[in-house]
Write a protein that binds this DNA or RNA. Structure first.
Lengths: 233, 233
DNA sequence: CGGGTCGTTGATGAGTTTCAATGATGGTGG
DNA sequence: CCACCATCATTGAAACTCATCAACGACCCG
């Protein structure tokens, strides 16, 4: 059974507050739950969808993390973004009903599925849902602005520090530690996201470690002082 | 009078087909026109809005072109995007009601203003408007994916060629020539967008000229062969 | 115990930035 | 009307960052 529906309960989901359900009353949440389905969890490096797939749904990350990529005309893959719990994925399909990039689980991960055909009418019916949808869309545009500032014309050292600070910030928003976390992606993905080579990323992490700003052990990151790391930029 | 309302007529606007009015019937367009206002045209390098301004409205480019920028924590400016006629600006404000970047006219330019307070209720009332709004939002996300592929890990020569091809494509969609156009921005803005130095941009344009792929005279660009330019990447 | 993936580290060279000088253009005021 | 200034673009030379190539070690899983 490909898309067996698992248990669905927005009303006691710890993410509901940053999710579509935010600001809805009990009855509205029930209506929302009726259109949400949960696919089985994805395994590491399994694809949620692939570029040019027909899009029937949007997705919200429930657990784990994802990476979204695009292939350019020459078949070179670029990492567009990483997605943590609570984030909405697939908005680029609103244009033509096709996904414009691929999304791949970085670890065991799960999503809530929001069928487009039902989301749109429901959001007309529930004003709070529409406004929350627009709010989330706005966050994504805002995040892109931040990303532009992160990736823009900076030396590798700064890109790396900024990358860690971005993750720190996002984990902190999710209620996790802002100073201690595990990278869910290999160096190669970070490099592709930052437009650097994987060796450079590795070396820059090493430098930050030498300076005493962070501790690194493979995927494990500990930021010794957020302030010093920021001011190192 | 700061925001004097100029003549508003979506129904005979040549851009209406790629704009919010697309797919609406005559009566619906009339309703849309009632909430749209036109500010006086902006002069070159005049700001449409500035980062952290309170956002009352979204904007659609009616004529001319714009550049959107963000300041990072260090006060360094990054060019996020260029905006041509028909494009919707300001979506990042849907999150918190604040603009997350600045938008600046590159030449004499005008916009249609869409007050957020009225747009949202109207789109609930007119299903076609809501779906067109979502469609446009989707295009912007799709465009970001394309931009990621454009800017990603490529040598300066490719970035420059891709940049020209992107503009060519966008002008062509607007009904202008895809092989002959004027850059509305100085080299410095192109450089900031492509994460290069302005000298590098200048040199790369020079190289493309030497190779016979394009003609350049300051802001004037003529692409001798789109196909050769593409295959040069 | 192999074999694969992943991360680190070193040496080298290419590509890009930076600094600097010069030329073209357009607007302004004498 | 022309000189002057500011802005923008081009070009050169030098310095440096970063990518590439390569080797090695750590780890995990079959």
């Amino acid at each position: 059974m490909e898309s067996k529906t698992h248990q669905v309960e927005c009303h006691n989901c710890r993410l509901a507050n940053g999710c579509l359900a935010k600001g809805l009353d009990g009855d509205e949440i029930k209506q929302l739950e009726t259109i949400i389905s949960h696919k089985r969890p994805l395994k590491p490096s399994e694809f949620l969808y692939r570029q040019d797939d027909q899009a029937q749904s949007l997705f919200v990350v429930k657990s784990g993390s994802f990476r979204s990529t695009v292939l350019d005309a020459e078949g070179i893959e670029h990492t567009v973004d990483f997605h943590l719990p609570g984030e909405l994925i697939g908005l680029e399909a609103l244009q033509k009903g096709l996904f414009r990039g691929s999304v791949e689980a970085l670890e065991t991960a799960s999503v809530c599925e929001l069928p487009l055909a039902q989301l749109s009418p429901l959001s007309s019916k529930i004003p709070g849902l529409q406004s929350q949808l627009l709010h989330i869309i706005g966050s994504q545009f805002a995040a892109q602005h931040d990303r532009a500032a992160l990736l823009g014309n900076h030396p590798a050292s700064e890109k790396t520090a900024r990358f860690l600070l971005m993750l720190s910030h996002r984990y902190s928003n999710l209620g996790y530690s802002s100073t201690e976390f595990n990278l869910s992606m290999p160096r190669y993905h970070i490099a592709s996201f930052l437009c650097l080579s994987l060796e450079t990323v590795s070396r820059q992490l090493g430098r930050l470690k030498e300076k005493g700003l962070i501790s690194v052990q493979k995927r494990g990151i500990h930021i010794n002082s957020l302030e010093s790391l920021k001011s190192s930029i």
